[in-house]
Each structure stands twice: as C-alpha cells, then as structure tokens.
Design a protein around this nucleic acid. Structure first.
Length: 492
RNA sequence: GGCGCGGUACCCAAGUGGUAAGGGAGAGGUCUGCAAAACCUUUAUGCGCCGGUUCGAUCCCGGCCCGCGCCUCCA
C-alpha cells in the first residue's frame, strides 16, 4: 500500500516512497525551546506522528530527523532576562517538550538534531555558500544569503519576488544588506551574547541555516520528505532550499508536507489574543491527553482546525465509546467459531480505514469505518451473533486503528498526574481545576471497597444505600456500569 | 494589494456528476430495582447566494457575499 500525500512543491498528490528503496528519509522542523509548547505546535507534531505511524503501518521503514533549535533570538532574550546562560535555560524546555510529546503519545523520531551540537556543519555550509558567491559578510561581521544567487527562489511557496525592488526602503534597520530580502546566515556576536568562534567570525547561526546543515548532514544532500507547519513554508523552507540547492544543485527534498494551523475560536492562536493554550493548561483543566490527541488529529492536516473545548469534550466521549467497546470484546465470553457477516464487516472496516489514511492521511474519513464496526459488532453481541474468531478479527482492527490514533489504550492517568505535580512544584497549583483534584482524591482501592459495599447492598435490595454510594462516587468523577458480568467503574 | 484555503444538519466533520459517511448533542423506545453502557427509531429533498454547462450539480464553470491563513518572528 502506498501513501498518496499532497506535495506543496508540485502542487499535487504524489506517492510517498523511499527513493533509495530502503527507508523513507524525512526531516521535520522541531521546536524552538524558549517556552512550553502550545497546542498549535502540537497539532503539527501530532500530524507528523500520524504520518509516521501510517507509513509504519504500511510496512515502511523510516529515517526521521527532527531538529531542536536551542539557540535563537528569543532564547537569548529570555535567558538574558533570567540571568542564566542558554545552556542552562533551554534544558528545562527540552525536557518539557519531550514530556509533552510522551503525554500525547507522539513517537520519537529516529534522530534528534540539536542546533548547538551542529555549529561546525553550519559554518562549513556558509563557507561553501561564500565560495559560491552566494553569501557575503557585512561590516558588523554578520553573513547574509544573496537571494539574487538563487533564481528559483519562491518555487515552494509559489511566490514571485521578481517584482520586488532591491534597495527599496523596506527595512531601514538592515541597511547593510545588499537587498532587503537577503536573510541572515550568521549573526555576528554582540557583547554578552552566546557566540561561537568560527573561521567566518565570532557569532551564532541564523535559524534557516540550521535546518539546511542538519538535514543534509543526517539525511544526505537530497532526501524524500520535508515537513513542518504551514507558516514555515515561507520564508523558512524557501530559505532552506536556497541555501542547500545553491551548494548541491540537487533538490533538497522531493516531497514537502505542510500542516495547516490550528485556530482557537476561529482566530490564530496568540498570546496577545488571549486564546493561547499549552498542553499543560488543558491537562490541568481536566481534559485527558487522549482526548487532546484525538481532537487535534481528527481534522485532516490540510485543513485548519478550529480548536474548542466542546471539541475536546466530544473527543472524550468518542474515546469512551471505543474503550467501552473494546473492553466488552476483551472481557466477554464468546462461543467458538466465526460469523461470516462479522468477518466481512471486520475486513471491510480495515480496508476502508487503510484506504482513507492512504488518501492524503484523511483521518476524519478513517474514523468512520471504525465506528461503523463498533455499532455493527455491538448489535451482533446483543443478539448473540458474535463468535470468538470474530472478536479476534475485530480486536485486530482496533489495534490497527490504535497503531495510528493511539487513544483506545488508556494511558491518561500518568500525564494528568505529572501535570498536577508540575503545577504544584512550579507555583501554579491555582491553575488546577478543583474538579480534577476531587477526581484524584480516591484511590483505586478505595473505589473498589465502595463498589463492593454497593454490590452487597444491592444484593440485600438496599437500593437506597447502593444509590447513595453511586452518587458519592459520581461526585468524585467515578462512573459505575452494572452488567451481567459484574460492575465496571471508570474515572470521568 | 498579491498568494492560498474554507462556507455541508444543533455542534464537529467526510464525501461524490446521479440525489448526503462518521462523531458529539437532543428526542422517543428496548434493557435495567433505578441508572450507566449497549441497541433501535428520529434530527439536511438539503450541502453560502445567483447564474451557466448537463438528462441530472452539493460536487464542473463564472460572478457575488462571508470567514480564515500566509506575504515579518511564528507550528
């Protein structure tokens, strides 16, 4: 099975296949670690995760590199304000980033590339650009890329910059540059700023050169796929192409994938808009990591996603439906044998599911056959028509679903527990929803004890006491379900 | 201004030239001591508006209205 994926560069759907016949070599732009990640960041990383997992489910091997930008203007600004060197400032945000990825079940790339560990490679690339007359140094010691050296500039974002007038009063602060659009490759050190000594002078790398140097170092001059948020298309990715292809004369990446933005209440998320949420904000409000994951991946990557709290609630309920269903299959007793109708239903669901993913990662379309199967199978179970082999076939379909979506298996307790601990340790305890704390107040053992007491009360037909216990548990966010096979409880 | 995307039921959302997946929510019912879960029924002759092409358009073409994103750091 082959994934058809929209390619920004060609403007059409192209098959995504490893050009070396072995593993798909892909580079995805990672975070700049100057603060905690927000849900917009994570939508992009989640969609790249969907891509990764889909390719793996199709049997493809991956060589996926993600950079971490651990030196840039914002980092320097913030670390200076905090009065500590960037080497002490960034680790906490690097750790937080990976913790958040874990909470959201985002798989780690095969290779993490840190900017500060690849400075030599960036310097070497700038020297090659200088040799090619595509880079020049200004009076203050900074290096810039000469846009006029790369006629194809704009081919990714389809921008025609030929009409832009050089030397126009576009950017008075950058009067030293030959052209207003020329971008920085190397920023000369200013007093007190983090800097590296290099043959091209003391300074630090520009953002764009990082990705060019690291992607080529880990994946070769020309690789299969480059991914990132839509905002990176211009100028970041365009600049990467210019830097790399000027030196190699080969396409940097054959395929470019851009994840569209997440909006909040119909607007781009921004601190100044007051609609800015980190993952931790949502966890502390009591939303489950799985619900956040599902909400952020259920709208296909090529569409804007309008984030709302209603959407999270909806995702919570949808996951609950799937989990309840799987538990019913796993714990129920089914007679041996196979029901041809159910076998067909399971096969069809699997086929449709895979086809939807193969069609440009259409996650919304991929969900539908799974929920169809849930309803069909539930009905069959109600009528005693579902047999043991059918159960196994359906469980296999659910595993294929979770291989990409990864929300049925309940791993929500840990991220929530960690978020609460983090809030308490960093003086943000006030941000923890009271309801969430109430929910945490009962141990599993305490719940089991109360459930047992209620079961006894029911047996003695003391329904008043039984209902009282059920209500008490409900107030603590524990929901009970009676069935022939006993009582199931779950945390809200 | 340039480039691009979207407007489908109460909400989210898929989709196709032949009459609308799925999820959530609501209503009624079955089951249950009562609930919960599950199942059944139900909620768009309708897919922003106006023209056109066509035997037939939500899906193709043109125009218009509305919303959003990028064009500067930004996932």
């Amino acid at each position: 099975m082959t994934l058809r994926l929209f390619n920004t560069l060609t403007g059409q759907m192209d098959d995504l296949v490893p050009s070396d016949g072995q593993a798909l070599r892909m580079y995805a732009c990672g975070p700049t670690v100057y603060d905690y990640g927000h849900i917009g960041n994570f939508r992009t990383f989640l969609q790249v995760d969907v891509l990764r997992r889909t390719l793996k489910l199709m049997g493809m091997k991956l060589q996926h590199v993600m950079n971490i930008t651990d030196v840039d203007d914002k980092i320097i600004r913030n670390s200076t304000a905090a009065g500590i060197p960037i080497s002490e400032y960034t680790p906490r945000y690097v750790d937080a980033f990976f913790e958040d990825l874990d909470a959201l079940r985002v798989e780690r790339p095969e290779q993490i590339a840190r900017a500060t560990e690849n400075i030599d490679r960036m310097v070497a690339l700038i020297q090659k650009l200088a040799d090619a007359k595509a880079a020049y140094q200004t009076e203050d010691g900074s290096w810039y890329f000469r846009l006029s050296a790369f006629p194809e500039y704009g081919k990714l974002s389809k921008k025609d910059l030929s009409g832009m007038e050089d030397g126009a009063r576009v950017d008075v602060d950058e009067y030293e540059k030959d052209s207003a659009r020329d971008f920085a490759l190397w920023k000369a050190a200013k007093p007190g700023e983090t800097a590296w000594d290099a043959p091209i002078g003391r300074g630090r790398p520009g953002w764009h050169i990082e990705c060019s140097a690291m992607s080529m170092a880990y994946l070769g001059d020309s690789f299969d796929l480059h991914a990132g948020g839509e905002d990176l298309m211009f100028p970041h990715h365009e600049n990467e192409i210019a830097q790399s292809e000027t030196v190699t004369h080969k396409p940097l990446a054959h395929h470019w994938m851009h994840v569209r933005f997440l909006l909040v209440d119909g607007r781009k998320m921004a601190k100044s808009e007051g609609n800015f949420y980190t993952l931790r904000d949502l966890l502390l409000r009591g939303y489950k990591a799985s619900a956040i994951r599902l909400a952020l991946i259920s709208v296909p990557y090529r569409h804007q996603l309008n984030f709302t709290f209603d959407g999270l609630t909806e995702a919570t309920h949808a996951i609950e439906r799937l989990r309840t269903f799987r538990e019913r299959l796993a714990k129920g007793a089914f007679a041996a044998g196979s029901n041809p109708a159910m076998k067909d239903a399971a096969e069809k669901a699997h086929t449709d599911y895979m086809a939807a993913l193969a069609n440009d990662l259409n996650t919304a379309e991929a969900r539908a056959p799974i929920f169809d199967l849930v309803r069909t199978a539930n009905t069959a179970i109600d009528q005693g028509q579902l047999l043991a082999e059918d159960r196994d076939a359906i469980l296999a379909v659910l595993r294929a679903f979770d291989a990409v979506f990864d929300v049925i298996e309940d791993r929500d307790a840990e991220p929530t527990r960690r978020a609460i601990a983090w809030a308490q340790q960093t003086g943000r305890a006030a941000d923890i929803a009271p309801e969430l704390l109430a929910r945490q107040s009962l141990s599993d053992e305490a719940i089991d004890t109360l459930v047992a007491e209620r079961t006894l009360a029911k047996k003695q037909r003391n329904f008043a006491r039984a209902d009282q216990i059920r209500n008490e548990l409900a107030e603590k966010g524990v929901i009970l379900e009676d069935s022939k096979d006993g009582v199931r409880w779950k945390r809200k």
